[in-house]
């Protein structure tokens, strides 16, 4: 018998040191399969996230929070072009669509790797923000899992802010 999401989410998932490794693995798998590119953890990691395209996916259930992927517009266009089989996206909306899908797959792939999270956590439809000069404020004091990657020499960040 299927248990409801409320029942399954009764025990909250707590991040530990393995989550960063799981996140890196989730990102690399998505890029290998859907973009055809092997991306690596940044070494050394850049100081702070920046870039003009940010995709966000909400997570609710045993883990409540927001996964955010951020990169430059140039990187986003490159990713979208590869996803479209080498055809450059015709409009910014196509680029946002591609980055939104990538963030959605990273979130899904990540939660599938965490024991007890796959069935107990739902994802929202992605939201993509275009622009550089913005700040994100959370009403909770979130725990964070942050990963910096290098995509074809360019930085790409993925952060998971966990609010409960």
């Amino acid at each position: 018998m299927n248990r409801s999401l409320a029942e399954r989410s009764a025990s909250r998932a707590r991040p530990d040191a393995s989550w960063q490794v799981m996140m890196q693995a989730a990102i690399r798998e998505v890029f290998q399969l859907m973009v055809g590119t092997d991306i690596q953890p940044a070494d050394p990691p850049p100081e702070s996230p920046s870039g003009g395209v940010s995709a966000m996916v909400g997570m609710a259930g045993a883990l409540c929070g927001v996964l955010r992927l951020r990169c430059s517009e140039q990187t986003a266009v490159s990713i979208a072009t590869k996803m479209l089989g080498g055809h450059e996206p015709g409009a910014l909306s196509d680029t946002c669509d591609a980055i939104g899908e990538i963030s959605n797959m990273v979130a899904g792939n990540f939660k599938a790797k965490i024991a007890g999270l796959c069935d107990a956590c739902m994802l929202s439809v992605p939201t993509v923000v275009v622009g550089v000069d913005y700040d994100v404020y959370s009403l909770a004091s979130p725990e964070r899992v942050e990963v910096s990657m290098t995509y074809e020499g360019q930085p790409l960040w993925v952060g998971l802010e966990i609010s409960s």
Partner: peptide, 25 residues
């Protein structure tokens, strides 16, 4: 599906789907 959630897959198969593919694929 991106979710990979077993319950969602079972729900889909019960509703008549003949199979499922998990993203990324």
């Amino acid at each position: 599906t991106t979710e990979g959630s077993e319950s969602r897959v079972v729900e889909a198969l019960s509703a008549g789907a003949r199979g499922y593919i998990r993203k990324p694929f």
